[in-house]
């Protein structure tokens, strides 16, 4: 027998979830089947899918490699100005993605380090490298936040015990801490990948949104919407929804409750 309180909360959750489903699902009804297939197998869409997946995988790997030591540092070590480090790393989550895009464009472009990088023939704007950088900066703060919580859940006494048994700090990290954090690490990787795939504003500014050059799925959606090609725009949107759904579903299936 459910209480009135329980019913009320279940109803609120159900109504809003169904609303989400209708809003997102509505997109699937807009294009015709022929229009969808044509857009899906167009050269532009295939390029966008390839570019999105390749840059996102590279960005996600870089984010995970950087966020493991950073999240562990913030979780375990005390040092001066740690509070300031945490605010700086959380900051991009609080302001619009477009701000990161403009900031990165200024930093990497003609107002920033572009002049010096130019000497070495390196260009980090309006190309695939720029997309990776944009995705990295957008996804990193979220990844650090998630993994920081994971490391906080891993009782540091496991590490104490391991070290008392003769293992060094680094051996303990790889033998004990990381295996105990593997569920959180897996979830962080999936969310990071999804975040990289969905990055838009920062990628638009730093990548330049150039057709068939820096055109990721989200950029393809934007460009085609601007030119009135609704089938292409919606197909890109549907692909983003499907990719996100699969990644989240994989995470839900494999990430059980933390046992530490």
């Amino acid at each position: 027998m459910r209480s009135k309180f329980e019913w009320l909360f279940i109803i609120i959750t159900s109504v809003i979830t169904i609303l989400f489903f209708i809003v997102i699902g509505n997109m699937f009804l807009i294009p015709t089947y022929e229009g969808f297939i044509k857009a899906l197998f167009s050269q532009q869409m295939i390029f966008a899918i390839g570019l999105t997946l390749s840059t996102s995988v590279v960005s996600a790997i870089l984010v995970i490699l950087c966020c493991i030591p950073m999240a562990y540092t913030l979780s375990r070590y005390e040092f001066r100005l740690k509070w300031l480090f945490k605010i700086i790393l959380d900051l991009p989550m609080a302001f619009p993605e477009i701000v990161i895009g403009i900031a990165l464009l200024m930093f990497l472009g003609n107002y920033g380090i572009s002049r010096w990088l130019g000497f070495f023939g390196v260009n980090l704007v309006f190309n695939s490298a720029a997309i990776v950088i944009a995705q990295f900066f957008v996804a990193l703060p979220y990844a650090i936040k998630m993994l920081y919580s994971t490391f906080n859940y891993v009782d540091s006494r496991y590490e104490f015990v391991s070290r008392s048994l003769g293992y060094s700090e680094s051996d303990t990290f790889f033998n004990v801490t990381l295996p105990l954090a593997k569920q959180g690490l897996f979830a962080t990787s999936i969310i990071t990948l999804a975040r990289c795939i969905g990055t838009f504003a920062a990628v638009l500014f730093v990548g330049g949104g150039i057709l068939m050059k820096t055109e990721t799925l989200s950029i393809a959606m934007y460009l085609n919407l601007s030119t009135g090609d609704i089938d292409m725009a919606i197909t890109a949107g549907i692909l983003l929804v499907i990719i996100s759904f699969v990644t989240i579903a994989v995470m839900e299936k494999y990430v059980k409750e933390q046992y530490v």
Partner: peptide
Amino acid sequence: PENRHIGIVYQDHVLF
């Protein structure tokens, strides 16, 4: 700590 040759046993065991 790893070179002190001191063992520790906790109340809640802390088994991996």
